[in-house]
């Protein structure tokens, strides 16, 4: 189906965008398919919920679709996309935080109680760890460890300084370490 677009190797985002802007649905779907998995998994780690991740994926793609003509075409489509996604996630998490005004401490106790070794492995364990971080730290962890952006890129994405990005990252690491130690203590105590 996408043969003519990919015949000469990987089509650039820019070319797909150009074609999509010229009205090609196929090019737009090509772009969607190229990024939706990465975006979905990103949202999954940020929200910890498949339903919310799907909502965010769709919201972000719709925003991108509607604003495609404002994309400056400077070769960093992914960065643009994830900047929109991080705004959307921040907004979402803030709203959700207001809805369930629960404290971090309560979460930790609730979730670390019955945890067994297996539960903390794999995707679920990681999502549980991420879920206890403040949104701003979550972003930095995600962008550094999963999207592999440099600190300067992260700074640009989040509209903060590179130094702030670094200190948020180290604060997040520290928080995760403390939580791990809590879990270990609960396990040893049990």
């Amino acid at each position: 189906m996408y043969r003519e677009l990919t015949m000469f190797g990987k089509t650039t985002d820019e070319l797909l965008i150009q074609k999509a802007l010229a009205g090609s649905e196929r090019a737009w779907f090509g772009l969607v398919r190229r990024y939706e998995k990465r975006l979905y998994n990103y949202s999954l780690r940020m929200t910890g919920s498949p339903d919310d991740a799907m909502d965010i994926l769709q919201d972000v793609l719709m925003s991108v679709y509607r604003n495609l003509s404002t994309y400056r075409g400077d070769g960093v489509f992914a960065a643009w996309l994830f900047r929109i996604a991080s705004f959307r996630c921040t907004d979402f998490l803030r709203r959700r935080g207001r809805q369930f005004a629960s404290t971090d401490e309560v979460d930790v106790i609730d979730e670390s109680g019955p945890v067994t070794g297996n539960d903390m492995d794999g995707n679920k364990g990681l999502m549980a760890m991420m879920s206890r971080l403040p949104t701003e730290q979550k972003h930095v962890i995600e962008l550094k460890f999963f999207q592999h952006f440099t600190f300067d890129e992260i700074a640009g994405q989040l509209g903060i300084s590179s130094n702030t990005a670094k200190s948020r990252l180290y604060a997040a690491l520290k928080k995760m370490r403390e939580q791990n130690e809590n879990v270990m203590m609960v396990k040893e105590g049990a």
């Binding site: 998994n41 995707n123 760890m129 999963f146």
Partner: peptide
Amino acid sequence: LQSKATSWRDERVP
């Protein structure tokens, strides 16, 4: 964290 991150298995988009 890096080793946890590399063990993340991408989930399929519904």
